[in-house]
């Protein structure tokens, strides 16, 4: 992995690594990739994509609207609210 890619990923995940941590991660990551190359040798030509690790499919519910929770209950743990809104630090790009 390129160092720039790692720095971009840090930005996405709101992390800030030191140069030493970056060096260690890149070394670890490249080693992992090298080891995974062994998987390329496996023939997957007629193997269906695994869509989920659990053998459970199509968990659906009927389209019925229900009101179970009140706004007040849901906002009990909120650091700040205002007139029914959650209030967060200003976000404008």
């Amino acid at each position: 992995m390129e160092r720039e890619t790692l720095i971009l990923l840090e930005k996405f995940d709101q992390l800030s690594l030191t140069d030493e941590e970056r060096d260690a991660f890149l070394k670890f990551y490249d080693k992992q990739l090298e080891e995974k190359k062994a998987l390329d040798a496996v023939d997957t030509e007629n193997v269906e994509r695994m869509v989920h690790v659990m053998p459970i499919m199509t968990v659906v519910r009927e389209d019925e609207a229900k009101k179970i929770y009140s706004r007040e209950d849901l906002q009990k743990g909120a650091p700040a609210t205002s007139e029914g809104y959650w209030q967060v630090p200003r976000l404008v790009e």
Partner: peptide, 11 residues
């Protein structure tokens, strides 16, 4: 975006 309190309100 609430200019008065300089916060954002979420619905």
């Amino acid at each position: 975006h609430d200019d008065w309190t300089d916060t954002s309100l979420v619905d």
